[in-house]
């Protein structure tokens, strides 16, 4: 049996909001296998995004153990977490978050530049661009694309450096039904074709249904569905 790519034990996160401590995560345990497509569902304020941010190294945990591809997040410094985002974990956001001044191609290229990727884009990724249907739109600026197309660019950018884990935070939150289905289909296709591990946060049960496994988050704790 191989080690899970994500191993979380007794994960807690407490924020200070004014004079009040907000317990966003209250002892989360989770194991995600390599190549798994997992959906974390739950209502707003349940702690999904906090978990997402911790896994992406955007904020440190308060206590507990988080192992990402063998790296203990509790032991990582700020620069260690930056390196984690560079190579191991990548994001797809609800708001696409493309750089508006760059073309589609350059938005993808800058992710490679940050990760110090050398040489031209590999053949496998060219196939991915075709699967995502953006291979003919590399010279366009984000504002010239539809929301669905922008989200597909964001997915391409997220996986160009072959990260171990793709974290998708409400990736269909800004899309209509047709584009949502397209994006979710593509994510599942990437998971199946290139074995990309995907963690998707969503409050939409229909979106969650695209994953292999769904866990429910409520009041800072995870519950199997």
């Amino acid at each position: 049996m191989t080690e899970p790519i994500i191993g979380i034990r007794e994960l807690r996160k407490t924020f200070r909001s004014g004079d009040v401590d907000v317990h966003a995560l209250r002892g989360v345990d989770l194991a995600v296998e390599r190549g798994e497509f997992l959906a974390i569902a739950g209502p707003s304020g349940s702690g999904k995004s906090t978990l997402f941010h911790i896994l992406g190294g955007l904020t440190p945990p308060t206590s507990g153990t988080v192992l990402i591809d063998g790296q203990d997040l509790m032991k990582l410094s700020d620069s260690g977490r930056t390196n984690l985002r560079k190579k191991t974990v990548s994001f797809v956001f609800q708001k696409y978050n493309l750089l508006p001044t760059l073309t589609v191609g350059d938005n993808i290229e800058i992710a490679r530049d940050i990760a110090h990727a050398k040489g031209p884009i590999d053949a496998q990724f060219r196939d991915v661009l075709e699967i995502l249907g953006i291979h003919r739109k590399l010279d366009r600026k984000p504002r010239q694309l539809s929301g669905g197309e922008q989200q597909r660019v964001a997915i391409a950018r997220a996986i160009v450096n072959h990260p171990a884990i793709l974290l998708a935070d409400e990736p269909t939150g800004n899309l209509d039904t047709e584009n949502s289905s397209l994006v979710l289909d593509l994510m599942r296709s990437l998971n199946e074709r290139i074995g990309q591990t995907i963690l998707m946060i969503t409050h939409n049960p229909e979106a969650a249904a695209f994953a292999h496994r769904i866990v429910q988050m409520r009041d800072g704790q995870l519950h199997a569905v």
Partner: peptide, 16 residues
Amino acid sequence: TREIGILKALGAGQAY
């Protein structure tokens, strides 16, 4: 500000 956040989310460090 948001673009700087995007770069950091992509793994850009302070020096970058």
